[in-house]
Nucleic acid binder design. Sequence first.
DNA 1: AGAAGGACCTGCACGC
DNA 2: TGCGTGCAGGTCCTTC
Length: 280
Amino acid sequence: MPELPEVETIARGLHARVKGERIERAWFGSKPESFLTPAADMAALLPGRRIDRVSRVGKHIVFDLSEAEAKHTSEATALSLQWIVHLGMTGRLLVAESGLKMPAHAHAVLGLSSGRELRFVDARRFGRLALRKPEQGWFRGPGAEPLGISQDAFRALFAGRRTPIKSALLNQKLLHGVGNIYADESLFRAGIRPRRMAGRLSRAELDRLRQALGSVLEEAIHLGGSSVSDYVNADGARGFFQLEHRVYRRTGEPCLVCGTPVRRILLGGRGTHFCPRCQS
DNA sequence: AGAAGGACCTGCACGC
DNA sequence: TGCGTGCAGGTCCTTC
């Protein structure tokens, strides 16, 4: 479902709602593919932890957990565990009163000290859950953060790449967090055709792309993300950035800048939208 | 190295 | 109403 702005919105909402909660119990009930860490290990290790922080890294939601019983000494509480959630296409993390009816496709439930539950619901089951132990170090994600990356670092990512720039934007090992919507939207705003070879873009074009990507992502976060079908944040509210899409899923509609019909092609198996006149 | 295609899943919109 | 088709915010694997 979600790309960087949606995941950021969800993580912020969860942080506000469950920070400080103690995990009382943990239940996992899906096929093992959903669990990169065996369900039995998560069920054994999560109860008794306190949620100190919820944040986003790439498209991952990261729960920082500490020992709920730890006595506070002068030394900062050592990180005890991180619970990593990737929402895939349709994954949702919902906070609900424990009495409320369980929605279809709930694959994990954490019972919280307030009596509420954190529910992981995922119809298509592309989402993934994992536990990260201290010896593995802080989770850093597969690539670089698109927000705040320097011009030099951004250029270096694409230098010499013989792959379409859109495919490179979707490659999470380069930049993490960019998905299909924001790849198309940032390329439109930068005036670059999705099929252009990444390594052949000029410095000026790459600088424009970095700028466009940054502003699109910031704007989308500000509006709570894009709700294309059923995306909702941790409070159940929809985002509004879909109203700002200029090419994504606007096939055949006039370009908002020049009026040329927006074209849709398949690139790397993904629906790809662009204006044939504005993007060269 | 990278592209193309399929696999993994369910649900929805659409045409007939 | 029902069925078939195509499409979907993602990622991973194999083949060429």
